[in-house]
Amino acid sequence: MARSSTFARVYFPLTLLVGAAGLGLTLCVLYHALIVLDPHMPDGSFAIFAPPETPQANPMKLYDSYRIFFVHLPCALTTALMSMVMAAAGVLYLISRHRRWDALLMAAVEVGAVTCLLTMVTGYIWGDFAWGKGWTWEPRLTSTLILWLSFIALMMIRGAVEDERKKRMFSAVYGLATVPLYPLVSRSIEMFGRMSHPESLESLLRVNEISELSAVAKPALILFFLFFLMVRYWQLRLAGNIRELR
């Protein structure tokens, strides 16, 4: 009972608040990004569209395609955040063996898998405009795909284990084992050199309107996905409580 009352008094309103703020801000960002935003683009703003090796598909179409970055970049940041939550929850579970950390780990894995997929899909769409092909075997794209596969692998391992304690332990250890992938994803361009993926959006962010909207888009979408993390966390915790009662 104590748990459900904490849920009713604190967690439920907090989740609703995060959800409302995330959804509201995300809708505002999307409205501005797709309809309102019409900045003056000085020369050089599209420097990021000129990959060193691949030809551009259709320069006429490039102008508006930057708008997808308002979704692509926050999704990539959320994936990084979820990976860190996953590793931290894994460590905390191994130390305390408390089910709450396992629920948080799994919620982070599920949300991370979705945001990672969204990052790749939005990147594919932009790449199709900018490079003439959505997918290239370049370090940032490949390492992101590998990270996504590790999320899926963790879910598969979990699905194959029947014993609940074993399931939690294996998830925590596997979550930790994916930590070496983070430097590979985040430092891939420094490690293997830039091929197609832009190193930063610096040339675009010099345009004031874009940099201002980008500063709002990141927290907005992160809050939006945080809402799903919170909902899923409580779903998993309650499911665990029900299993225990049975």
Partner: peptide, 29 residues
């Protein structure tokens, strides 16, 4: 570590490959 995990599970060979390969990709790259 991954083999110790999957050795007691059903379909351990496939699971080991699925779980291990994404993790060791940095080494192989």
């Amino acid at each position: 570590v991954i083999a110790a995990m999957t050795s007691s599970l059903r379909g351990r060979d496939a699971l080991l490959a699925i779980a291990l390969f994404p993790i060791v990709v940095p080494l192989f790259v």
